[in-house]
Every structure is written in C-alpha cells, then in structure tokens.
Design a protein around this nucleic acid. Structure first.
Lengths: 275, 275
DNA sequence: CGTTATCTTGAGACCAGTCAATGATTGTGG
DNA sequence: CCACAATCATTGACTGGTCTCAAGATAACG
C-alpha cells in the first residue's frame, strides 16, 4: 500500500511536469488538473464554415515542445491532423497513473473519437505543426461526401485493429517480446516513409514507451541495454535507433498469425489539407 | 523455453477443441487451421440486394453452441447483429496462444472491422441467433444514409474507447483489480438491461475471462475464490454471479478518472433489423 | 452413469516492479 | 559561454505477484 502511494506521488509530479511547464503549483487532484484550469501555453483557435472536405477551412497551428493539443475533459471542438512532429496520446487515471494510448505521426488524425469531450490528453513531443478544423464542420462535410466518410470510417477501423494488436502485444508477450514488436513496428513505419537501413527517430521518451507497453522505465532501459549487447540494434543519442538484426528481433515474440494484416503498413493518406 | 513449448501444445489443443468439435485431427499449424479448411458446422448463407438501411434484407441464422460465426482469415462477406446469446471474439497467434478481444451481447454488431478478411474468430458461447446481411449491401446502404452512417461511426468509436479502457484495465491494475473492473462492467451492462440486484449470467468460461484480461485460468479461479471468501460476491453454478458489495469492488482498482465517460453504459441501439 | 471438460487448490520458480543511487543529457540564467 | 539545475537514462539488489506445473474436485454431456 505504501508503495502505491509513493508511486502515485512520483507519477503526479511527472505528469505535472509534462503537462504544462508554466503551471507551477501542484493542484489538489489529477481530475482538477485535467478538466479544470486553462493552460497558458495553449491559446484557442477559431475557424468556421461548412464545406466539402476538400475545401474545409483548415487552420494552421504550431506548438512548442510539450505543449498540449488538448486536455482530457476538454470539449471536443476541433479535428486535428499532424503535419510535422509527433504527438502522444495519454489517458490520466484518478489514482495518478497514466496510460499512453498511442503515438501520432505526420499525416495522422490526432483524434477521431466521437464524443463531446476528449477522453485523453494529446501532447507534442517537440515543436510540431498541426492543421485543425471545427469538429462540426468536419463531420458535416463528411456527411455530405459518402466516399470521404467511408475512408474516415476505414481509418477508425484501422485504429481499432491497431489497438487490438497492442493488447495482444502487451498480454501475450513478455517484456522483451513487447519491446521487439514495438521497435519493429516503429521501424516498419519509418522505413515506409524514408527507406530502409537508416537510423530511425524515436521521438518519445523511455517512459513513454514504458507507458505504452505497460512496463516501467527501468525495464525498458534494461531491455535496450540487453538488445545492444546482443547486437540486435544500435543506439545513437537518446532518440535514434537502428535495427541491426531484424530477423532475430522478429524471432523474440511469438508472432501474430501471419494472415493478420499489419495495420501499421497500410495507413492510407486519407486527406491532406492544403499546405 | 521448454515451458513455452508445453504451453503452446496445451493452447493448441484447447483452441482445436473450442474451434470446431467436428474437426478431429490437429492440423500442422495454427495458420492452416484458421485460414484453411471449411468448418462442417458453419454452412454459408446467401443474401443480396442494396437498399436503405431500414429495408436491408437481413437473414436469420441460428448457431449451435461453440459454432463459429466466422473464422480468422475468412473473407469478410457479412455484417452480423446478435439477436440472442453471446459471442466471443478471439484472435489466434501463430505461437498457439489466443487473445480474447471482446464479448458481444444481444444488440451488438459482431464485426465492424473494415477489411477484406476477418482478423479474428467469432464463436457462439451457447445456442445463439444472429441477423446477417452482405457487407457490400450494408455499406452501400450506409453510404446513402448519412445519419445512419454517422451512428455507425459512433459505434466504432465507442468500441475504440472500450478497447482503450481495456488496455488501462490490463496494464494499470493487478489481477484483482482487473477482475473487479471486469465484473463491475458485466454487472453494469446486465443491470442496464434487467434491473439491479439479481444474479447475472456470466456466459463465458473462466479461461475466456483469463484470456480477455491477460491472466490465466488459475489466477481467475483464485480471485473468484478470494472474492467469495470476502463476501464481495456470490456464485451460483458455473455461470451465475451476484455482486454483494459493489462499493468494495470499486475500491479495489485505482479507478479511471471520473471525467472519463464509461462507454459500457451508453451503447446506443443503432439499428434493430426486423425481427 | 461413465467420460470428458472445466474448475479449484497447492507448491515452487521466475519475471518484472520497486526502491535507491549514479551517470548522461538537456535546459536555464548569469 | 559556462556553471548549475532539472530531467532523463542506466544499473543493481531486493521483493512480490503471477505463471507454471501438477493433482484432485466438480460440473457438463452423451
């Protein structure tokens, strides 16, 4: 029990830091943090109009490192697309823990949940650029264009598949297996963009990987060290990795039945807002 | 390593049994099981026509206990709605393990994944009744009715939220906490249908609960025993439970931040095919 | 009513979490 | 530009919860 309290305190402090670096005091509860006061670094945007998807009035928005796109509990007013940089989705629990739900890379929608309020935080890893449009306008436009809406539907379905895969990764592998699967996924996605064999950017922190896979910082770190020693991968700085022996990495976890299509490989460019 | 092989064999045998009780030989690999030969107990259905959602030509279908609605790897030709009974969604891995992805109860769509092939098995717990319609017809009709399509979209988004919650349940709680959360969820869903305070049907096996929560049979069983001893719940037969002390159960896991809306409570009756 | 499958219970091993200390990197202000 | 502080990463020792293996009890089924 005491260990739990200690862990809670540590997580609270961590979340406070990650949340918004201009908020200095520790609020009374996580819930108040997440639903309550405005974040100084997060000015609101304004956009309007109902049009066909291709003509939607996308606004630009730049975020500084660690700035939030939105907070858990906020009204869901905008739909966002990542133009550059990476975003982390994170669900806060009332006991102070937090679960990383996913990472979004350029071209991805940050949120396609259909509910009145956001169910998780979205936060920039580094300086990023977004396009945004009013949710109402977005869905109105989608409704008027069945083909676009169908594509949207597909994207959500693929998100769903990916989360299913994540559950399998977490529950059916040991920590090493989860890490191997995660790194191969990251590598595959990056290779699809930049070609093969090069260093891959790992924009998130060790703790983010841990939160995503249901592990701890320490375990993630240990496994990185282990993989380095076994010459399975190379690490450059804090955010660069290069897989050396993909075959060996693939052999670590019991793989998913090969007739399952990996959703990571077929993320369709649904829609690219002007510039 | 040897323990892994042993586990694989056990799981293979189990999956074989659960899969189709008329298939007697153990096929060379899981993949061949799942994508390959036809299942004797699963005759194909036929339906056709493209119409508005309300007029879709839903076919009826009855399944015997343990019959599969479809198999992982099959072409995705039909959309199903459960009319009575319960269905279990299960993803097979090539290492012989299997992950329970979810349970579907009356009124739910069995599959709304949008891909050419099914990514998991769907299997009846007991005798069940379904309605089905050709996938192509279903989505054609949905495209012609924006409001219906939007509702469909919402349902998928809620599925997504529920899976997110499942991940949180699995990774952020210990076994006891996961079980408590699971039982409370089942109880809440059943209470919404039948009213409160009564015995709730738990149609799945212990092993299904274990597979869903990333635990083992033994752990689930131990926790049931533990909860009984602490007078938190009552068990009748194999498939009946009644929660006695919900407050105590809720206190076991660190709860999800209360500004998160529980998706289990707001499953909308999207569409009810004519009897 | 015998057979099979499922559930329960116990003992032991091991993986990953926890706590704690140090090293590396990043960021800030003088 | 450098010194300092804060954050992040790494490593080690220890603990504990969950899996594994194995055996017996109970329930389902033909």
């Amino acid at each position: 029990m005491s260990k739990h309290r200690a862990a809670n305190m540590r997580m609270k402090c961590r979340e406070k830091t990650l949340r918004c670096r201009h908020v200095n005091e520790l609020p009374p509860s996580i819930r108040n943090i997440s639903a309550g006061r405005a974040c100084q670094t997060c000015p609101r945007m304004h956009a309007a109009g109902v049009q066909r998807p291709s003509d939607l009035p996308w606004s630009r928005r730049k975020l500084v490192p660690r700035q939030h796109v939105f907070h858990q509990g906020d009204d869901q007013r905008y739909v966002y697309i990542v133009k550059s940089g990476f975003v982390r989705l994170c669900s806060l629990l009332s006991n102070g823990k937090s679960q990383i739900i996913g990472f979004k890379s350029p071209g991805d929608f940050v949120t396609l949940e259909y509910s009145s309020k956001h169910r998780f935080n979205a936060q920039a890893f580094a300086a990023i650029e977004l396009r945004s449009v009013l949710t109402a306008a977005f869905y109105a436009a989608a409704s008027s264009d069945p083909q676009f809406f169908l594509n949207l539907y597909k994207v959500v379905c693929e998100d769903l598949s990916r989360v299913h895969d994540l559950i399998v990764t977490i529950t059916k592998h040991d920590a090493e297996g989860s890490m191997a699967a995660f790194l191969l996924d990251i590598d595959a996605r990056a290779s699809a963009r930049n070609g093969n064999g090069d260093f891959v950017s790992l924009p998130m922190l060790r703790g983010d990987i841990a939160g995503y896979l249901g592990l701890t910082n320490e375990t993630v770190s240990r496994i990185f060290t282990n993989f380095k020693k076994r010459r399975l991968l190379e690490v450059r700085g804090r955010h660069g990795i290069r897989l050396i022996d993909r075959r060996a990495l693939r052999a670590i976890p019991g793989q998913i039945a090969s007739d399952r299509i990996s959703p990571a490989m077929e993320s369709p460019q649904l829609f690219s807002p002007a510039n």
